[in-house]
Amino acid sequence: MKDLQSGLRVLFEVVFLAVLGLDGFALFISVFLPLQSGTFQAVVLLDLAASAMVLVAYLTRPGVRDRWNVPLVAAPFYFIGVTILGVPQHSPILAALNLVKVAGILMAVRDLAGSVGEFMRRSRLGYGVGLFISVIFVFTILFYIVESPVNPLVVTYEDSLWYVLQTITTVGYGDIVPVTSLGRFTGMVIMFSAIASTSLITASATSTLLETLRGEQERIESRRRDEFREIEARISGVEERLERIEEMLGELRKGP
């Protein structure tokens, strides 16, 4: 039962951190780049769900529930401003609030990472994941800036995101191709970054797994040594008792 609860807690933490990271990325992009109406509505719903998850996570952890950034991270500014109050999507006030919220999300990830965050710090898995996320974040913007003015296949930011995702995952459908020299260079960097991040993630995960197995083996061997020492102590006690019994029998045979 405890193993099941522990597994469910880790699964929730992974989903929670993924939603938080995606929400921070989507909010930052929505502030600076134009998004299609459907994409923006998806960002609003994602931010609403992430805000609710953050609020529940903070309220259920006594050690962090009083942090000053709780109302900031738990407030769905787009949903309140655009959906309820009718504020324009590109309002400077909403943009400023969401940028501050992105900073608060980074703090929330640090506060609420839990065992998953500890595992990533111990295994150095964060380097590979950080490189993967950074490549997506930086090069989607760069590719959009250099290709959208001249490439008819890159009309929106979503097109750039689609190109980077299919390149970094080595899928490569070929429906979007760069036409500028800087765009092609960007694609090359993304390809090599995919190899590097995959290698880092694989090496970190493998190293941590081997270290865990080695530690488990050492614990088993230590437990066995303790059991052997206990058995030896018991055997020594039995031998001492047998010696005393033999001495007593010898004295009885001699008689008075």
Rank of each mutant, 00 (worst) to 15 (best):
M1E: 08
L4Y: 09
L4D: 09
G7A: 14
G7V: 06
V14M: 15
A18W: 07
V19Q: 02
L20W: 02
G24F: 01
F28A: 13
V31S: 04
L35N: 00
L35S: 02
L35P: 01
S37I: 06
S37N: 13
F40N: 06
A42E: 04
A49H: 04
A57C: 06
Y58N: 03
V64H: 09
V64W: 07
D66G: 13
R67P: 01
W68T: 09
N69S: 12
N69C: 08
V70C: 05
P71V: 06
I80Y: 06
G81V: 04
V82D: 00
I84H: 07
V87S: 01
V87Q: 02
I93K: 05
L94K: 03
L97T: 10
N98V: 07
V102D: 01
L106V: 12
A108M: 12
R110M: 11
V116R: 02
F119W: 15
R122E: 14
L125S: 01
Y127H: 08
G130V: 12
F132I: 02
I133W: 08
I133C: 05
S134I: 10
V135Y: 02
I136E: 02
F137K: 02
F137S: 01
T140K: 00
T140C: 10
I141R: 04
I141G: 04
I141L: 08
S148G: 08
P149M: 09
V150S: 08
L153P: 00
L153V: 05
E158G: 04
E158I: 05
L161P: 05
W162L: 09
V164Q: 04
V171R: 14
G172H: 14
D175N: 10
D175I: 06
V177Y: 05
P178H: 04
L182W: 13
G183A: 08
R184N: 11
G187F: 06
G187R: 13
M191C: 10
S193T: 05
A194T: 11
I195P: 00
A196M: 11
A196P: 05
T198P: 01
S204M: 10
L210D: 09
E211P: 01
T212C: 07
L213Q: 11
E218S: 14
E218W: 11
R223Q: 13
R224T: 07
R229K: 14
E230F: 05
A233E: 15
S236R: 15
V238Q: 09
E243R: 15
I245A: 14
I245K: 13
